[in-house]
């Protein structure tokens, strides 16, 4: 195993639990497993293993990118779980999606916040009350 793959697996499993990196690769078949391995090597062995940002900040940035691209519900679910594991609060996770609306527009932000909130609830997180129109 390359150092980068080993490092990537460690980082990935910090977020998703023991054995999950091999599980991600095993979800693919034969030659296609190389793509999943690249994800562990480059995303987690290279980028996520760098100093300079916390794991929570990295999950927040990934959530922002996923919302901006749109149509990536499985990844949004996965990184919402990762964000919780990295120590982001439900408020921070939901506010991350709310912040994107001015840049990505309402349809993408609304679709994303449904998926993110459902995932938070499935993982036992409590969803804070709305601030409402007279919050400040």
């Amino acid at each position: 195993m390359t150092d980068r793959l080993a490092k990537g697996k460690r980082r990935f499993e910090e977020l998703y639990g023991e054995g999950k990196a091999d599980g991600l690769i095993a979800m693919q078949t034969g030659l296609a497993q190389d793509l999943a391995r690249y994800g562990i090597e480059f995303n987690f062995g290279d980028v996520y293993s760098r100093p300079g940002l916390t794991l929570a900040q990295r999950e927040m940035i990934t959530l922002g990118v996923l919302v901006a691209m749109g149509g990536l519900e499985p990844q949004l679910r996965g990184h919402t779980r990762g964000a919780l594991r990295a120590g982001m609060t439900p408020t921070e996770i939901i506010e991350t999606v709310i912040h994107t609306v001015q840049y990505v527009g309402f349809p993408r932000a609304l679709n994303a916040i449904r998926v993110v909130t459902d995932t938070l609830v499935e993982n036992g997180a409590e969803i804070p009350e709305p601030l409402g129109p007279d919050a400040d």
Partner: peptide, 25 residues
Amino acid sequence: IWTRPGLDRRTRSCITLAVLATLHH
């Protein structure tokens, strides 16, 4: 949006940069 509590401005800047880069703006 930018005046909401819950995220500080540094954090909002991080998200904003990621989104704008993704969208090629």
